[in-house]
């Protein structure tokens, strides 16, 4: 065991954590998944930019559809997984599901941001403005803010138990909130104007290679989502482990500094007056 002479707080990773300590979050299965998603992205780019025809009405602007619609779907999927994971965590105290909820909330936030950004890029040539107060746009923006709220709670500077439980309550309410906000925003807009712009623009007329492109987009984005989710989950798992081990490591370090025997770190020996052991709490 190495002893660092410069006493640093916080993130000291112990020299020999455990024999089976992973050095990356990858595994053969995820590498395969990653390769499949990257190949899929390449094919989707070719499909979206070259192989599919222009839209009669929208021209080239329609091509953003192949990433916009799948990312919106993934955003809602992630949101649903967050609520599911939070519910199971509160019910069974399963840390595994808590981390699934956290990881999918982050991904949902990313995909919601992608949805909003691509939607605005599409709106500019189609409607002439980046933003209209359409029901879908507004409720997607609210979904993004709700997800940021969940992530803010989950990343609180507090104990894991506090963070996890509070975030789980927020996560549990996330999907119901999304539904209520969606419904209210829809009523709010439809009382003032006719049905959503999407209903009479796209949807009914899509067919052939364009339909295949969109379907392929769902598959590719599903793969990307699964790939990122697995990695993010493993990273979160390791983060929690390091946070747990940081304290042990710091205690061992302080003991070594004070000239005590650094050998038995797990037994919580009564702290000596000369060795401050409680400084790792940031």
């Amino acid at each position: 065991m190495t002893t660092h002479s410069s006493a640093t707080g916080g993130r000291t990773v112990p020299a020999a954590p455990s024999p089976a300590a992973p050095t990356s979050t990858g595994s053969p299965a995820t590498r395969l998944l990653g390769i499949a998603s990257l190949v899929g992205v390449a094919v989707l780019v070719a499909l979206g930019l070259w192989l599919t025809p222009d839209d009669v009405v929208q021209g080239d602007a329609v091509r953003i559809l192949y990433i916009h619609v799948p990312s919106a779907t993934m955003a809602y999927t992630g949101c649903f997984l967050t609520t599911l994971g939070s519910a199971i965590f509160l019910w069974k105290r399963s840390k595994w599901w808590e981390l699934v909820a956290y990881a999918s909330a982050e991904l949902a936030a990313v995909f919601t941001a992608v949805t909003l950004a691509t939607g605005m890029l599409w709106g500019r040539p189609t409607w002439g403005v980046f933003w209209v107060w359409d029901a879908r746009l507004t409720s997607t923006a609210m979904l993004f803010l709700l997800l940021l709220g969940y992530l803010a709670v989950r990343r609180l500077p507090a104990d894991y138990t506090v963070r996890a439980k509070r975030a789980a309550i927020v996560g549990l309410l996330l999907f119901p909130n999304v539904l209520i906000v969606r419904q209210s925003v829809e009523w709010w807009r439809t009382l003032h104007q006719e049905a959503s712009l999407f209903n009479n623009g796209l949807g009914a007329t899509i067919e052939g290679l364009m339909l295949f492109g969109l379907f392929f987009g769902f598959v590719v984005f599903g793969l990307i989502f699964a790939w990122l989710l697995i990695h993010r989950f493993r990273l979160a798992w390791l983060e929690e482990k390091v946070a747990g081990q940081g304290l042990h490591a710091a205690i061992a370090e302080r003991r070594a500094e004070a000239g005590l025997d650094p050998a038995p770190p797990p037994t919580p020996a009564p702290s000596r007056p000369g060795a401050p052991t409680d400084q790792t709490r940031a």
Binding site: M142, A158, S184
Partner: peptide, 22 residues
């Protein structure tokens, strides 16, 4: 929590959007 003053509006205002609309 130390961040409660900033956290509560962020959490609560999106949730209360339906109330504001309604």
């Amino acid at each position: 929590l130390r961040v409660r003053e900033t956290l509560l509006p962020l959490l609560l205002l999106p949730v209360l959007a339906p109330v504001l609309i309604g």
